[in-house]
Amino acid sequence: MKSDACDASLFELDENSSIPLWLQLKNRFIYLITSGYYKPDDKLPTVRGLAADIEVNYNTISKVYKSLEADGYIESKRRQGAFVCDVSNKPGVSISATAEIVTTEYVRRCRELGMTLEDIEAQFAAGIARERKKLEQGE
């Protein structure tokens, strides 16, 4: 079980994005939960702690947690904190849905690095080729 300590690097936000900060954070939490980074029953950082660590308003984090709870990703327990729910049977949470989230994140980060879509496609194809070669060699 993960501790409730916060690794601020998990929550890089784009303040220039047209996507509101609270929604960027919510989407990031959903990704971290559905990808398995956070496991069922893991305790999330406190609202105050996360707000301080990533320098975002307390009310913004509170809104994220309330929204995640309403959508069934987390459960708040009074005086104990917020804990990750088992979402393995949740509609829309599947390998393909998680892969789509990961792919979207990959493309976004590559674009932030200044890569064109053609550059990203070539990089991705090279990565697939490397993995294919490893599989063929039995690694």
Rank of each mutant, 00 (worst) to 15 (best):
L32S: 06
T103D: 03
T34F: 00
F11K: 02
F124M: 12
A82M: 06
E55G: 09
A99I: 05
G81Y: 01
K66P: 03
Y38P: 04
G49P: 05
R78G: 09
P40S: 08
Q123T: 05
T104C: 10
Y73F: 14
D71C: 07
V64S: 06
L50A: 12
D41A: 04
Q123S: 12
L117E: 11
N59E: 07
S3E: 06
K63M: 12
N27L: 14
R111L: 15
S3A: 06
E100A: 11
T104G: 12
M1R: 08
E69K: 08
K133Q: 10
K66T: 13
G92H: 00
I61C: 04
M115H: 13
S96M: 04
F11C: 07
A51E: 02
V47S: 11
K2I: 08
K66Y: 07
D53L: 09
Y73K: 04
M115V: 00
Q137L: 11
L117V: 05
S35R: 02
A8Q: 08
I19P: 05
G49W: 05
R48C: 05
A70N: 13
I101Y: 03
R48Y: 04
I30K: 15
S18R: 13
I33D: 05
G138A: 00
A51D: 08
G81H: 01
R130N: 10
M115D: 07
L32V: 04
D14G: 08
T46N: 09
S67V: 09
V107D: 04
A129D: 01
I74R: 01
A5V: 14
L13E: 07
T46H: 05
V56G: 00
N27F: 13
S35N: 00
Y38C: 02
S94Q: 01
S3M: 07
